[in-house]
Design a protein around this nucleic acid. Structure first.
Lengths: 343, 343
DNA sequence: TTGAAAGCGATACCAA
DNA sequence: TTGGTATCGCTTTCAA
């Protein structure tokens, strides 16, 4: 019942606790033990005893003494969100590869919530934080950085913030890709429905759209309607009707939830793609295959995003301390929803 | 830069560390401080100083000394899975209400993975575990229970396991509901496509189906095909063709991923609901509204499931130690995919 | 290569 | 109501 401690192992193996600690923390290279100045035979004996006794390090004690914790925190806006739950999965498994345990906390797009999560997690001496910034969270994140805690910004940039690593999608290109395929297939009155979250990723997608429209001389048709995650259900129907009234031909929808919302509203209204509206959605999903015309969409490299986060935070914790910004490319998955426009 | 400790607060407030500890751990009732034998004025002073100095408890130290951690672990099979990511969200927010921090780890339906997560998390002195058991994980979970750690089984039962709390869906009823609505709408050759995971929830859904078929004298049509999460994509097409060949009229699909898979395969094959196959799916999703006929499905009460988990684990940790089994009811969301059969 | 001993920052026990 | 002090289990000098 009582837990096995380092002392028990030491006694049983006839060595000091120091030695046990050395051995238990040693990292193996390709061959044997290297980073620790312990007689290999002694080491093996200690390892064996530890195994037999069922020793498991008390992380609380280790953390108290060392100030580290082998744990990282991940703070998405919403773990049940399609994008973040996907990325989190990859973060989680990469993290455990590196020996980190992962804390999760959803910020709910609220800076106040983000702060309280952060403060709770800091009490655990976490070694690093992977966070999706939300509007107004800059000070909280800056404080983290100032406290010397490695931070990786995921999915959203905070402009001008240095001393952090960043893992982002090339959102501008995503916006351009989406817009371009529509234009090239003969659509001109292309609009966006987006969220007013004030976050870089959406702003960049919007910029990519607007920029491309301009490049093709379609600035007069640039139009971005904004709604919120909470009120999208009520808003979208009206937005579609308005668009219809003004002869809009296509939509670029820069998030998954918006894509599903708009498509489902269109369905309710008896509208189809691409005849009523051509559509480019966002994020990969089986759902897009379920329409009579499959829905073209922008795919994010979830695995690469997640794994890169962990690699960067690991680098920073490891001491090399190099800060990097990694920008990954989106892919356009074609679909019938952007079929060439009938003349 | 240096962290503020209880000592700093004590010095600044002219009291002993003991007192600070008392105050910082005191819980407020509706009025003021109660559970701690400290002069209210002193307490206020301590609180004020702590706030000013920016004191934050070092959980590692607290945990080392007390053996507790104010943290719970949640172990779904896959955090990116629709069902679990939804439930996790509610677990998370309820947990933070109670002051718990949450560790997540996905077991990937593998007992070995579950064990290694458990062992990693145990190093942190977690106060309790909410876990979705997988095939073969019984011994690992039993060990947890034997070690005196509060455990709540989520979504899946381990039969005969006592000394744990359980939060389950009434899966038998879910199976019955689905089957019954199909039968009542004139379908007789009703089949299931399910996973061979060996977990209670699926087995119960299957039992509910088979039982209902029997009750209506349709035992000759009982047929449950099994696939796996990993191979569903290849398998499903064949399974549908087989079914078609033998004149199957309807499917009950007992998970979300299966529902999407089958519906999308049907779409690829040019088949529709309910004419080619009537369909009852599982779990709530916008997706089901996107079909020309909306898809009837069984809805799980995600919020209630998640919150109940936390309440039960909190009770167990709190010491009352009462073990409970809560079985929540599913709801049938009707849809065109089960429309009355044309004669 | 090995070991002794000094903490890390809290809590818990006992005494005042 | 308060305060002193011995831990909790580990890592980390420092010395042998």
């Amino acid at each position: 019942m009582k837990r096995v401690t380092i002392k028990d192992v030491a006694r049983e193996a006839n060595v000091s606790v120091t030695l046990v600690s050395f051995v238990m923390n040693a990292k193996r290279d390709e061959n044997g033990r290297l980073d620790c100045p312990v007689n290999p035979e002694t080491a093996e004996r200690v390892l064996k005893v530890a195994r037999e006794l069922g020793y498991r390090r008390n992380e609380a004690a280790a953390s108290l003494r060392s100030g580290r914790s082998n744990a990282i925190a991940v703070i998405p806006t919403d773990i049940s969100n399609r994008f973040f739950s996907g990325v989190s999965r990859y973060i989680e498994s990469k993290a455990s590869e590196y020996g980190y345990t992962v804390f999760f906390g959803s910020s709910d797009e609220k800076a106040s919530k983000l702060e309280s999560i952060l403060s709770a997690l800091l009490s655990y001496n976490i070694d690093g934080v992977i966070v999706a910034p939300v509007k107004g969270s800059r000070p909280a994140i800056q404080r983290l950085v100032d406290a010397g805690i490695p931070v990786v910004l995921l999915d959203r940039d905070i402009e001008g913030m240095t001393d952090v690593s960043k893992v982002l999608l090339d959102d501008f290109v995503a916006g351009r890709m989406a817009t371009r395929v529509l234009i090239e297939n003969g659509y001109r009155k292309i609009e966006m429905i987006s969220y007013s979250l004030g976050i870089s990723s959406l702003l960049e997608r919007e910029k990519g759209y607007a920029d491309t429209m301009k490049a093709y001389g379609l600035e007069e048709f640039i139009r971005i309607a904004h709604t919120t995650y909470g009120s999208r259900e009520e808003d979208v129907l009206g937005l579609i009707k308005d668009a219809q009234a003004r002869g809009t031909e296509a939509f670029f929808l820069p998030t998954y939830s918006l894509s599903v919302q708009v498509l489902s509203a269109m369905k309710d209204m008896g509208l189809g793609t691409p005849d009523d509206f051509a559509v480019v959605g966002f994020d990969n999903s089986h759902v897009y295959r379920l329409f009579s015309n499959t829905v073209a969409h922008i795919r994010q490299p979830l695995q690469a995003l997640g794994e890169t986060c962990v690699e960067l935070i690991h680098d920073m914790i490891g001491g090399s301390g190099t800060k990097q910004t990694i920008v990954l490319k989106p892919t356009l998955i074609p679909g019938g929803s952007v079929q060439k426009r009938k003349p």
